[in-house]
Each structure stands twice: as C-alpha cells, then as structure tokens.
C-alpha cells in the first residue's frame, strides 16, 4: 500500500531534523518601569518574572497527573457496573 518516500517526504524529514537542531526561541527581557509597577499595585506580573513563568509551567505539568485519578475513577465505575450487572443476572 505504501507509495514509499517521495522527494517531498525527504524534504520534510530534512526540515524536521534541521528544526530539532535549532536553539530554543528566546524573547528579549521585559522592561517594567517603576510607573508600570506602581500601576499594578507594586505586584510584579507573572510575565515579568521568568521564575514565576517556570513555576506556572511546572504547576500545569503536575496538574496533568490528575488524569491518572480520572483513569482510576473511570475503571472503578466500569467495574462497579459489571459487578452490579453480574449480581443481578
């Protein structure tokens, strides 16, 4: 069934390899003036603090672990359904 690798497939594979070899994109540091900070009640916004941004990402990464709890609940509900059905049959 496969038509094999074409010229465009090889070109795409080369793009993938070259992109993976590139350094990460960076943006220039955010400059927050004293007036800007005062307008925000002296609270540094998350986007102005690289550590806060990293913490936010880490929190989101850890939050994904709740999916395991969802899986456990889903399996438990199916087992419960099967058990009730077996008991009633």
């Amino acid at each position: 069934m496969s038509r094999g690798r074409t010229t465009s497939d090889r070109a795409t594979a080369e793009i993938v390899t070259s992109l993976a070899a590139r350094p990460y994109r960076v943006s220039p540091p955010v400059v927050l003036t004293a007036a800007d900070l005062a307008a925000r009640g002296g609270v540094l916004p998350v986007w102005a603090d690289p550590m806060a941004l990293a913490d936010e990402t880490e929190a989101d990464r850890l939050r994904e672990r709740r999916l395991f709890a969802g899986l456990a609940v889903a399996i438990a509900v199916v087992v419960l359904l099967w058990t009730v059905r077996s008991l009633l049959m």
Binding site: R25, V26, S27, V30, T57, E64, L67, G70, L71
Partner: peptide, 18 residues
Amino acid sequence: IPMHAVRNHYRETGPYLP
C-alpha cells in the same frame, strides 16, 4: 488520555513572550 500526564510538551517549553 491518561498518558498525557507523562507524555506532554511541558518539559520542552520556555519563557517565550513574542
């Protein structure tokens, strides 16, 4: 879906504000 808890893109992100 539960695999997303370990197989996601978060470790490859960065503080990028374009």
